[in-house]
């Protein structure tokens, strides 16, 4: 059975049909790409999958659990984590605290435990710090643990966002244009990072990207979206040579 099963998903904003009849099936361990021209509805699909928007039609099933219309928090608990197209870090917190904020629900202790500094506080805080550093290591951010997130260079901010998303221990990781604003060298590094994330953390990855070098380099399967509708899907090589897809991107 597929990890993520999306059936006939649709949403309307007033008269605008932003996403229509979108279906996709992602197997566990896939590295799946979602591409399409600007305004095709890719980020809207991410927002539907993470509960930011409630779909007007269709259903979303994660690992056999129906998560259609659930809140962002419930969906995160069910196992979907994401990054954002425009980076959204906890900018005044340190790199370490950004990841620890993501670990809050996994290492839960009460507010009173924190205020009265009970033994549980010290134990869980120590475990959290260890786990956070473990999560930062593959991104080579463990050396920057005490740096305020806003002061990180751009590329590292993108990586920190991925590390923070992984802190919630997701089954499915959604990356929204992870290579945006990166130079070819940084993109090459990012491709390795994404492969590491998939292989070492055992998460399934669904990513939106415009950088075709990244898409053809690491995505195994693709779905192409145009005007809110699915244009084409299948293995990467096949999809990128499809005449319909070329037409959507380049025109006639």
């Amino acid at each position: 059975m597929a990890l993520l099963e999306v059936k006939k998903l649709g949403i309307s904003f007033g008269g605008l049909r932003a996403v229509d009849d979108f279906s996709v099936s992602i197997e566990k361990g896939d590295l799946y790409g979602l591409i399409g021209p600007n305004g095709a509805g890719k980020t809207t699909i991410f927002n539907l999958l993470t509960g930011v928007y409630k779909p007007t039609d269709g259903s979303i099933t994660l690992d056999g659990v129906n998560i259609t219309g659930k809140s962002t928090i419930e969906i995160n608990k069910a196992g979907i984590a994401r990054t954002f197209q425009n980076i959204r870090l906890f900018s005044k917190l340190s790199v370490l605290d950004n990841v620890k904020a993501g670990l809050t629900n996994k290492y839960r202790y009460s507010t009173a435990t924190g205020i009265f500094r009970l033994p549980k506080y010290f134990r869980l805080e120590r475990e959290m710090t260890e786990r956070a550093l473990e999560l930062l290591r593959p991104f080579e951010l463990d050396g920057d643990a005490d740096v305020i997130a806003a002061n990180l260079p751009y590329g590292k901010q993108r990586k920190l966002e991925i590390a923070r998303a992984l802190a919630t221990d997701p089954k499915l990781l959604l990356l929204d244009e992870p290579a945006a604003g990166m130079n070819p060298k940084e993109t090459a590094g990012l491709m390795n990072t994404i492969l590491t994330v998939r292989d070492d953390f055992g998460v399934t990855v669904l990513l939106i990207e415009h950088d075709m070098a990244l898409v053809s380099g690491i995505c195994e399967k693709l779905s192409v979206l145009n005007f809110g509708q699915l244009l084409c899907e299948g293995p990467t090589g096949q999809v990128l040579n499809d005449p319909e897809v070329i037409k959507a991107y380049l025109g006639e």
């Binding site: 928090i73 954002f84 900018s91 904020a101 809050t104 629900n105 923070r164």
Partner: peptide
């Protein structure tokens, strides 16, 4: 305080 949407995305109530 720093980012409401991101806080929700990591499951903070």
């Amino acid at each position: 305080r720093d980012n409401r949407i991101a806080a929700e995305s990591v499951g903070l109530n």
